[in-house]
């Protein structure tokens, strides 16, 4: 698995933007979400789990905050992975 597929969603600490962050119960779920999103060309990328969501370790998936992106993301997961939460943050 490499860089092909969905374009990365870069963060810029100097100009945070609203994003949706999907958190997961396990690393496996985060990577399965990545695989499904890449297969469906849904934009997003893996990031470290933000402390604003949970002071913890782990991986999360960040995607644009728009409704269409949320719908595409959930459609890509197709119920095969259940995010613990979808949280809007400035990243």
């Amino acid at each position: 698995m490499g860089g092909a597929g969905a374009p990365p969603l870069r963060s810029d600490a100097r100009a945070p933007q609203r994003r949706l962050v999907a958190s997961f119960a396990s690393t496996f779920d985060a990577l399965e979400a990545e695989r499904l999103c890449r297969a469906a060309s849904v934009p997003g990328r893996i990031i470290p789990l933000p402390a604003q969501i949970r002071a913890d370790c782990g991986l999360a998936w960040v995607l644009p905050a728009e409704d269409a992106a949320r719908q595409a993301f959930l459609a890509a997961l197709a119920g095969r992975v259940q995010p613990v939460a979808l949280t809007e943050l400035a990243l």
Binding site: A25, S26, T27, A55, D56, C57, G58, L59
Partner: peptide, 10 residues
């Protein structure tokens, strides 16, 4: 690497 705040295995 996940659920690190817990005192038990996930």
């Amino acid at each position: 690497g996940v659920q690190s705040a817990r005192d038990r295995q996930p």
